[in-house]
Structures are given as C-alpha cells and as structure tokens.
Simulated assay, not measured.
Amino acid sequence: MRRLDLALPETPKGDAWRDALPALPDTPGAYRWFYADVTAGEYSAVCIFMVGSLFSPRYSAGVKRGALPLEHCAVNFALYHRSTRRRWVLSEYPRAAVRVLGGGRVLHIGRSMLEYGLDGTVCMEVDEQCAPFGGPLRARLVLEPQVMAADEVQLVPGLPHYWRALAPRAKARLEVLSEDVVAEGMGYHDSNHGEELLGARLPGWHWARVHGPEETVVDYHLPGGVAPLRVTAGALGTKSERRPLLAEARDTSLTGWGLRVPARLYAGNEPVDEPRLLESSPFYARVEARRDGLDVMGEVADFRRFHSPFIRWMAHFRTRVERAV
C-alpha cells in the first residue's frame, strides 16, 4: 500500500504509539479508522475518525471507479443517555490532513481533530453539525491510557485487515458543550485498517469490550470458523491471543432489520445482561449492557449488506456531506 507524503511512520509496538500517527491509506478500497468509546455515569458516547469511511455509500459505490480513501473521510459521534441516543453526527469530507502540534501528532477532518499527545493522552475534538439536518455539536473526549497498547493483529489469516487496541483501558473525560454534559468514566480506543473494501472478502464481525473493576477484556469474533481474538488489559499487563472456538454457539436474536445480534452480552463466560440497542440499521448494530461494575459495549457489522444499492441509498439519510475546511 502506497503512503502519503504527509503521513508519519507506521505505529511502533509498545508505548511508542503515543507520539506517532499511523500512515494514512491512499489506494482504492483501503481504509483506516480510529475508534473510541466512553462510559461515564448515565452517559456513554462513541467517536470515530475514518479515512475511507465504512459508512460512506459514495465510497462503496465508487471504489470500482478508483475512489480513494482520502476522498471519503468522516467523523462519527454519538451521545447516549441511559442507552437512548441523544445526538448523532456523521459528516463526510473529501480530504484529511496530518500535522505536528507541540511534538504530538494531529489528524484533522473538517473542523474536528484527533491528537496523540507526547504525554500519552488521546484527545478527540468534534465540531460538527448533527446529521442529517440537526444543529451544531461540539464535544471533547480525552483519554489517559492506564495500560500498554496491544500488539497489532491480523483479523483473518490471508486477508489484509488489521486491528490494534491502542488504549484498551483508559481514564476518560467527556465534555459535550452543546448539551451541557461533563462526565468522567472509563474509556477505550482502538484502530482498524485494511487494504481492500470491507465486505469484499471479509463479510463482517462482531466484537465487545468489557470494563471490569480491575481489567478490560475485548473479544473479537470473526466469520468462517476463524478463532476469535481476545485482548486482556489490567495490572498484569496487556495480552493478545487467539481463543478456541466455543463448543456451543451462544444464543442470538434478530433486530427489526433482520440483523443477528447476541441475545446476551458476556464478561468472559459470565452473562452480564440482555443488550440494549444503541444503534440499529440493516447492516450495523451497536449494543450496551451494564451490571454490578461490569460495562459492555459492542458492535455487529455485516458489510456485505451495506454494499446493496438499497442500503447505500438509505445511508444517505444519516450522513452530511461537507466541503473541505
């Protein structure tokens, strides 16, 4: 995969990722995104910076004509109160930029920015309009990692899709200025990247992260009989491993869109609760559960569905297409 001149070296292992921003992709179908979530009291929020947006119907339709990931960058932010969505941002832009600020590295998409500071903090600032026709939203999420980053792993042997838990367990401060929300809690941060369009050969996945009192566990489930991945992060360090397939499949249920989601969310083998649907669409669902100091956030994605012309048409109604800023 070719690299842009504006990009910085690939993320090294260990703690050194904190002052480096990975190179951005520039080949058709490639993507890289940076995901973070936070649970803070009655609030939870998700923020994603995307280069080669997985939510972009224009990128999905244009790849065969040579559409480039930097032409389809996006910022997604969702705020939830007691598992009910309060605000939704999905803004798509035709460019992104990387610059050095005070020795740290900053990714700019529109008026929003993602910064990796030299002190180890991760800061996401969102300055957008709610989609599709909502008012302005300004938010700031700051993560202070409490554990080492995990090693990068290949999701499926032989396919060019990769995942890395950069800050699997972090102190978090969430400020949503336009909603008068200030809250502190637990945060999580990871990054995915790949060299081909999701759904081309990798049909989908589901994953969940569990914050407990002492450690965080992330389970990543993949299709086709591929052994799931697990990251465990706590006082004893951060460990990545492949787990054996479950002897018995866990129960699932169908959303109103016919997407199959877990019927219960688990902390290891311990059921936490029935998931609450934060987001539900024909190809994507976001779920949450909390009980007795355990907090679970997860996602289910079927990327093959997204490439249906009808689903791409529907996706236009949850997106704002913006000019470069």
Rank of each mutant, 00 (worst) to 15 (best):
D219C: 03
E299P: 06
V38Q: 09
V156P: 08
E125F: 12
R111G: 11
H211F: 14
R250T: 00
Q154P: 13
A301I: 02
T252W: 07
P309A: 00
T216N: 10
T39P: 04
G102Y: 04
C73S: 13
G66Q: 10
L4Y: 05
H307L: 03
E215R: 15
Y31Q: 04
W207V: 00
L259Q: 03
S240D: 13
V218D: 14
A200V: 01
P244Q: 04
R320W: 00
H316V: 02
P94T: 14
L245M: 12
R99Y: 11
R65W: 15
V147I: 05
V210E: 04
D190V: 11
V272H: 08
A20R: 07
A208Y: 14
P168C: 09
V176R: 07
Y266M: 13
E215K: 13
P282N: 12
D180P: 03
Y188P: 03
A263S: 08
R169T: 03
V142W: 01
C73G: 07
R18H: 11
S112W: 10
R291K: 15
R312S: 01
R242S: 08
L245R: 15
V75M: 04
A167V: 01
R164Q: 10
D180Q: 15
V122M: 06
H189L: 08
H108M: 12
A172L: 07
V100D: 15
C123L: 14
P136K: 05
G194M: 02
L6A: 02
D292I: 09
R95A: 15
R173A: 11
P12D: 00
T232V: 15
A149C: 12
A40I: 03
A96T: 06
H211M: 12
Q154F: 06
R140Q: 08
A96C: 15
T232K: 05
A150N: 08
P28C: 04
L259D: 13
V156S: 09
G66P: 10
G135S: 08
A150Y: 06
D251G: 14
T252G: 02
E144R: 03
D190M: 11
A74K: 04
D292F: 00
S56V: 05
V89C: 02
F317N: 05
A233L: 01
E274A: 13
A170D: 06
H307C: 07
Y284N: 07
R173P: 01
S191Q: 14
P213L: 14
W207K: 08
L174F: 04
Q129W: 14
E195W: 06
L177C: 00
A67E: 11
T319D: 01
E299K: 10
M314F: 02
R209I: 04
L197M: 14
P160E: 07
G258T: 11
L254K: 10
A78K: 10
D219I: 08
R209V: 03
K64G: 14
